[in-house]
Write a protein that binds this DNA or RNA. Structure first.
Lengths: 256, 256
DNA sequence: GCAAAAGTGTTGACTGTACACCCATGT
DNA sequence: ACATGGGTGTACAGTCAACACTTTTGC
């Protein structure tokens, strides 16, 4: 019976097909009440001048997730990523013809973060900016390089789904925040209207979703000043917050 | 404004780090009432003699999913995979040290299928057999090559989660089947007991989950002969079939 | 006072669970 | 007859959506 050990170090690497591995990052944020994603304009062929997800080759000794963080920082000039940022693996895209240069398998990541400063061009001088997801969807939407439109669709769906059964909606907000601000995140990401009172009850009924600060916002507009909250320790939402609209099933999501 | 076209064909491929891409397949089935996975015994270093998931290098012009099907067939001698088999991408594993030979990024797939014939050794003479998932879990479980133990854990959790909100439980059964057989799949995969009457009501209340044949099984054991069903067209289960046990949250799943 | 936004209370529909009960068959 | 597993009925508890209502602010 084997003890299941790696055995002696190999003498030489065996042959394998020439396939490149990249990471692509879909950074989602809510700016001015709109769900937005970060895109960079490509400076080189192929798809020169096209908008694309930030991404690039994985280094030989680099973990995939580290590569995602690195590319995000390099290509967008966003050096200080917010501590509350969330990043998870989305899916791997490997159609043989997705890159005209060669066979490229891309591991896509989704990130969610509060509104960020307007990104400076990255180290390789590409322009980076946020685009509203609305401007990409539909047949007349902005065209993206490679299969990035598909990745965006999958990633946005993943985010919509994650909001149902995790507390990640709060990752889109700077602390402190109000329950109305949190509700507007849900409404924008899902594209629906939610009953304020029922939303409030639901959020507060989940222990650790949000923590009350016991303070009120200084009234900026007419109406009663809202109470302020920060993110709690809970990560899972149980029972889930379901998106309305008939009683259709949630879209299938690819994921952890 | 760019029209977002790939542009002229590239002159030469640019340099990229030497990273190999493989697929690994976690085939789940229920044999003799036990949730089992298919493993192959490695014939070559590293981890010679260890049990591992079937898998191998992706060919240069091969789609990832095609590679998963090919490896499954090649390494297990299972040439005629059942039509009802389900296969989906699980997650990509790319820790820099997961393979001692070189940098290997592996795209893992999960498959679910009815009980299959005992696999013949694959084309490269490796032994293939099914192992009960129970025999792998826990600190005294079978040790697997590479990080395959982690992949198995993630994949089993994915399957448990999929049973909650999809009709995939029926993918484990040969048609026709009875509702009790379907219930036993759920009970085994989740490791719980379910109330037969409530399970029945739930399954039948989902349009298209199962289709009654209008026949009864020829009584093989004592008791009333059950009615027979085949899989329906529905893929999504709404509302979901929740696993019991307190009201704990479902484990987070990585997936579509 | 009035408008506006935050927050509370109440009700009815629906879902899931537990469990008592009936049905059809082998022995 | 009776044990065994299939299948039906029912009643209680929890959750959610709808919406009326109260509170606290700016103007």
């Amino acid at each position: 019976m084997s003890t299941c050990a790696p055995g002696p170090p190999p003498a030489a690497s065996q042959r394998h097909p020439a396939v490149a591995v990249t990471v692509d990052v879909l950074l989602l944020t809510v700016r001015n009440g709109r769900l937005c994603i970060l895109l960079v304009q490509r400076a080189n062929p192929p798809f020169e001048g096209c908008w694309a997800l930030p991404g690039g080759f994985v280094e030989v000794d680099e973990d995939l997730e580290d590569a995602a963080y690195r590319e995000l920082a390099e290509e967008t000039g966003l050096q200080d990523l917010p501590a509350s940022m969330y990043l998870e693996q989305l899916k791997t895209y490997g159609a043989p013809d997705r890159d005209p240069r060669m066979r490229v398998v891309s591991v896509a990541y989704v990130a969610m973060a509060p509104d960020l400063p307007v990104p400076r061009p990255g180290s390789d001088a590409r322009i980076a900016r946020f685009w509203a997801v609305n401007d990409l969807e539909g047949p007349d939407g902005l065209r993206l390089a490679f299969d990035h439109r598909l990745i965006v669709a999958d990633g946005v769906e993943r985010a919509r789904s994650k909001l149902e059964y995790t507390t990640l909606g709060a990752a889109f907000l700077e602390e402190p925040f109000t329950l109305t601000e949190l509700r507007r995140i849900y409404e924008e990401v899902w594209g629906v209207r939610l009953d304020p009172s029922n939303f409030r009850r639901k959020v507060l009924s989940i222990p650790g979703f949000v923590t009350p600060l016991g303070e009120q916002a200084t009234a900026s507009t007419s109406g009663r000043p809202p109470e302020l909250y920060r993110r709690g320790e809970a990560r899972i939402l149980w029972p889930p917050l379901k998106r309305p609209s008939g009683d259709e099933p949630p879209s299938p999501g690819e994921e952890d």
